[in-house]
């Protein structure tokens, strides 16, 4: 079965979405990520969507859910690399992803995760 790979780098999980996802693939990713967060006790999840040329309400909902689930499991999620056209479309669609943390690119996202993962 087709799956989106989840990479582990230190305490963080990295997901790069590069395909035009159909809904089932998005659902599988959502389940896989929850499993991996639980199994690895990761401190943070970084989702890179810089290669995505479209985010509709379904993918938007998946991102929101992943962010919410990970928060309950004491993990930070950062969404990085959203393209300008995608951002404008999402806002027009009425999907503002409240509560989801964002960063311009993977490097900034990693820094954000590192800072928030540092012991208080």
């Amino acid at each position: 079965m087709e799956r989106i790979p989840i990479l582990q780098i230190g305490e963080f999980l990295l997901v790069t979405i590069q395909v035009d996802m159909h809904d089932q693939l998005a659902m599988t990713l959502q389940d896989d990520l929850s499993e991996r967060i639980s199994a690895t006790s990761a401190k943070g999840v970084l989702i890179d969507i810089s290669a995505l040329d479209m985010v509709d309400s379904f993918i938007g909902r998946m991102i929101g859910t992943i962010s919410g689930v990970s928060r309950i499991m004491d993990t930070q999620t950062v969404l990085v690399g959203m393209q300008p056209a995608v951002a404008i479309t999402l806002v027009e669609l009425g999907l503002t992803l409240p509560g989801v943390r964002t960063a311009l690119n993977a490097e900034r996202g990693m820094r954000l995760l590192n800072n928030s993962a540092a012991p208080q």
Partner: peptide, 17 residues
């Protein structure tokens, strides 16, 4: 244009679903 195209494709995704 890229923006209009993205908006159209997103609308298509919603309606097709």
């Amino acid at each position: 244009s890229l923006i209009n195209l993205t908006k159209l494709v997103t609308a298509v995704s919603e309606l097709a679903r």
